[in-house]
Computed example of a mutant assay.
Amino acid sequence: MILRKDRIFYLDEVRALAILFVLLAHTIKNFPVNINYLTSPTLLSYLTISRMGVPLFFMLSGALLIGKDYSLSEFFKKRFSRVLIPAIFWYVILFISVAYANGFNFDLMYEWIYDAPFPWFACAIIGVYLLIPIFSSFVKEYGTRGAGYFIFIWLILVVLTNFNLAEDYYAKLIFGNFGIYIGFAVLGYYLANKEFNIYSLPMVIFSTIIFIACLVFNMYNAYYFKTVFYIESFSIILQCSALFLILRYLSKYASFNPSKTLSKIHNFIKDSWIGAIVYALSVCSYTIYLMHYQIVDLLVQFYPITTFDLVPVVFILLTVITLAIVLILSKIPIVNKLIGIH
């Protein structure tokens, strides 16, 4: 896999972390239900981190697509094909494998089609794509200030919902479909384009403090109040924003201060085998997302997670196996066009 020079490395870092968080979340979901994960600080820390996966994906969509110049026909043709073709391909592959494993039992096949785990993400991202041209026109007219205005209104609604200050009907109306996702997309655009009046290193330090504070707060709430926050939580939004800014401004600091120790560490990661893995995870992230459910199900059958310390073991195995499968498939003509690598 050849590294493209036109890619922005910190966005590849965000995408690589996003898919790792998703894999971690679905590894945790396979933890034995008879064990109460809310009593384990270790498992809670995994949950607190893994919640960032889906928001980061939508933030990337906004960072990469909002405000760009394109025709509507070109945009929808390219974006919809990138989402739908791989989704249909993997849906068919998984359906055939499930049907074969269950002896083509009609009732089980129907149940699997109805409860299939991944189509919701494809539907959500398509919904966001339908709205992105509208927001692109808006930010071209009003810039980051206009995006900031939208985010301000969006965060007010998030806070009202978080503190049960809005009726359930209105909360579902706002967040039940695309509201929360397009909000993350606009937030990603804003954080990628807004020039804050602060130097890079102080921004990295400040964002790191915010990120750690959110992690501690979320873990504390989960451990003592039995509340595991979801993506529409204000603290998860802040946590994702802080991580995004850490990576953006660390990259900016390294480009302007190459002789500094922190910059040397960053550039070593970027130019070494670690950077190659980050790039591979980034370009394969959507494919991995679509096909990893079956792999994690097989893994926990042969390597059941019975203790907390097995979670990282299964997570690492899942990551290595899914990435290896995708890289192998990427070498096969025609198949490499269908599986969703970009």
Rank of each mutant, 00 (worst) to 15 (best):
S71A: 07
I85C: 13
T227K: 15
S255R: 13
M109R: 15
F256S: 12
Y293L: 15
L64N: 05
A63Y: 01
T39M: 13
G275I: 03
L20V: 04
I265Y: 08
K331G: 12
Y110C: 12
W120S: 15
K337P: 02
D297H: 10
L44P: 01
N102V: 07
T161G: 14
P117D: 11
L38T: 10
I277A: 09
I125K: 02
P133E: 10
L38V: 08
V22H: 00
Y249W: 11
A122K: 11
T307K: 11
L65I: 07
A101D: 12
E195P: 03
A124V: 09
L317S: 02
L131V: 03
L130M: 15
K252F: 15
P117I: 05
I305H: 00
P32Q: 08
H26Y: 04
Y10N: 07
C284D: 06
A192W: 02
T48S: 14
I35T: 02
I212R: 07
E74A: 13
A116G: 09
V139H: 00
I231K: 14
I2F: 07
T42E: 10
I156E: 04
V22F: 01
E141C: 15
W154M: 05
Y37Q: 10
G103S: 10
V159T: 10
D115I: 12
I277T: 13
F244E: 00
K78C: 03
S251R: 01
I288D: 01
Y224F: 14
L247Y: 01
W112I: 11
A185I: 03
A242T: 01
I126G: 02
I274V: 15
F302C: 02
Y293V: 14
Y279Q: 04
A213N: 06
V159N: 04
S71N: 10
L17A: 06
L155K: 07
F175Y: 09
I85T: 15
F217S: 09
I153E: 11
C284Y: 09
F58D: 01
L160E: 06
V314Q: 00
N105I: 04
F234N: 07
V186M: 06
N105R: 05
I182E: 00
A280R: 05
N267S: 12
A280C: 07
Y129W: 04
D115M: 12
P304W: 00
F229P: 03
T144Q: 04
Y223K: 14
V320G: 11
I125T: 05
Y190W: 09
F58W: 05
I328Q: 11
I328T: 12
